[in-house]
Design a protein around this nucleic acid. Structure first.
Lengths: 124, 124
DNA sequence: CTGTATCCCGTAAGATACTG
DNA sequence: CAGTATCTTACGGGATACAG
C-alpha cells in the first residue's frame, strides 16, 4: 500500500473521488457527525442544523441508500422517526474525526497567522 | 475533548462544517491528494484528472487562498507553473488518508454485501 | 504552457405551503 | 411530527475559444 512513489496515487485519488461521491454536499457529513453521537429525530436534525425539511429529507434518503444511516419508525402518537448511524456509517468516524480535528486546527492556524501578520495586532 | 455525551457535538459539527467549507466541491481533495504525493504542473493536473482549465484554475486559486497549496512560477521557456502542497495542506493528510481508506472499504462493503446477498453467490 | 473570458446547463439547496 | 410538492435562485462545473 505504499513506498513506490507515485504509483499509489492513481488508485488513491480514485478512492477519494468515490468517497466524495458518497458524502457529497454540505450536509451529509454534518448530519452523520451528529448521528455518531446519538440518534436524532427528523425535526431535531432540522432545527439543530437549520436545514429545511425538503433538503434534509433528500440527504437522509441518499444516506440510507448508501447504508450510512438507519431509519426507524417509532410507534408513538403522533408517529416519530428516529435516524441512527449504521455500522457502515460508523466506519466513517475516522473521516468525521479527522475533519472535525482539522476544522479546529484550521481555525487556529488562520487566526494565529492573522495575529502575527496583522499590524493592528500590535494593539495601539 | 470528550467524555461528556452530547456536549461536544455542537462545536464538533461546526468544525466539520468549517472544514467542508474549505474543501468543498468535487476537486479540491482530489487535487490535494495528488499534490501530497509530489508537485504537479497545471497541465499535468488538468490531464491527469480530466478537469477543464477554467475549473482547475478556480479550484487552485481557492486552495491558495486557504493556504493549502503553494504556486511557484518556474523560469523555464515557455514558463511553467508548479503547484505543491503547503504545510497546512499536508495537515489535511489525515483527512485525505481517511477518505481514501474509506473509499476502498466502501467498495468492499458494498461489493461484499452484494455477494452474500446474491443467491448466485452460492454458486454451484 | 498557463491561464482567462464566454456560454451553458444541471442541480444543490433554500422558502413556503401543504398532506398524512 | 414526518415528509412531499412546487417554485426559485445561485452556483458548481463542463466545453470551447482566446490571450499572454
Amino acid at each position: 500500500m505504499l513506498s513506490c512513489p507515485g504509483s499509489a496515487s492513481k488508485s488513491q485519488h480514485q478512492a477519494v473521488r468515490d468517497t466524495l461521491d458518497v458524502i457529497s454536499g454540505k450536509w451529509k457529513l454534518v448530519i452523520l457527525a451528529m448521528l455518531l453521537d446519538r440518534p436524532y429525530r427528523f425535526k431535531e436534525l432540522s432545527r439543530e442544523l437549520g436545514i429545511s425539511p425538503r433538503v434534509l429529507s433528500k440527504e437522509l434518503q441518499e444516506m440510507e441508500q448508501h447504508q450510512l444511516v438507519r431509519r426507524t419508525v417509532c410507534d408513538t402518537r403522533p408517529v416519530t422517526v428516529e435516524y441512527a448511524s449504521s455500522d457502515h456509517g460508523r466506519s466513517l468516524l475516522s473521516v468525521v474525526q479527522a475533519m472535525s480535528d482539522w476544522g479546529y486546527l484550521h481555525h487556529e492556524t488562520i487566526v494565529g497567522k492573522k495575529r502575527s501578520d496583522d499590524p493592528a495586532a500590535k494593539m495601539g
